[in-house]
Design a binder for these strands. Structure first.
Length: 155
DNA sequence: GCCAACGTTGGC
DNA sequence: GCCAACGTTGGC
């Protein structure tokens, strides 16, 4: 099982909104960056997704999700009304894909960017490729993060 | 609100 | 195919 970090601006879509969904799932759509897309395509069923709130007062990992459906073409790319419309995308040749993620857990104590900065995770893509909105974690990074999570948020 | 980082676009 | 201009992300 792999672990990923998925960023969202809480003003646009927050973990509370995900929890409020009837099925507590969401399609991770609207991603328009090729590296991020490739990461979305690489997600397997059962992979863990850390929900990261970006562009807000306290950037932080705020909870966990689970991949419950592999990526398939993102409908918003075909919709001229959508802000994510892509005129160069066709149904035969879609460019953008979204997996479905299910809410698993919201942390009582979010893992802030500041806290992560003081750990070995400072060497992860969260800091190295800080603009990328969908990031993979290595096995050791995932293990480190999991330890921090469990220390601050015991099950 | 500023600005650095960096991906994308488009002219040549 | 290069690269300058431009736009966006996101921390601070």
């Amino acid at each position: 099982m792999k672990s990923w970090i998925l960023k969202s601006e809480p003003d646009a879509f927050s973990i509370d909104q995900l929890m409020a969904e009837r099925t507590q799932t969401t399609l991770w759509d609207g991603v328009r960056n090729y590296m991020a897309r490739n990461n979305l395509l690489a997600m397997e069923l059962g992979d863990k997704g850390y929900f990261y709130h970006s562009s807000c007062k306290v950037p932080a990992i705020v909870g966990e999700m689970r991949v419950v459906e592999k990526a398939f073409p993102d409908e918003t790319q075909f919709n001229p009304e959508s802000r994510y419309f892509d005129s160069k995308s066709t149904r035969k040749n879609p460019r953008w894909f979204s997996p479905r993620l299910q809410f698993e857990r919201k942390y009582a104590t979010p893992i802030t960017r500041g806290m992560l900065h003081k750990t070995v995770l400072v060497n992860s893509q969260l800091f190295k490729s800080f603009r990328l909105s969908v990031l993979p974690l290595t096995q050791s990074e995932a293990a480190t993060l999991e330890k921090i999570v469990l220390r601050l948020n015991p099950l």
